[in-house]
């Protein structure tokens, strides 16, 4: 059952990867990356329960945090165009 679950998560990952490759706009790719991170968290959880080492679940927590921070950075960059001080002035 765990194998089927992880395989289906991996198929979803592959679909997200295809969208990131094809994605015409930036936002398709951002969405694909975000979805990929979420699927990684799910995959780690499923793998932890499959291998019986549930102490690895901390990793899934860290991954979701990293995913969130990276996503905020990506979106901020795509809106402003830089991380510098000038960008904050140009912010609407």
């Amino acid at each position: 059952m765990f194998v089927v679950a992880s395989l289906s998560i991996l198929i979803t990952m592959a679909l997200a990867l295809i969208r990131a490759m094809m994605g015409p706009t930036v936002f398709d790719r951002v969405l694909a990356l975000n979805m990929f991170g979420t699927k990684t968290v799910l995959f780690i959880c499923v793998y932890c329960f499959a291998s019986g080492r549930t102490d690895f679940l901390d990793l899934a927590l860290l991954y979701s945090l990293m995913n969130f921070i990276g996503m905020v950075a990506l979106l901020r960059f795509s809106q402003i165009g830089s991380f510098g001080d000038n960008g904050q002035e140009a912010r609407p």
């Binding site: 991954y63 990293m66 995913n67 921070i69 990276g70 950075a73 990506l74 960059f77 991380f83």
Partner: peptide
């Protein structure tokens, strides 16, 4: 996934 993505974007 965290720091290097931000550095690359910068």
């Amino acid at each position: 996934a965290g720091i290097s993505t931000v550095l690359m974007l910068a």
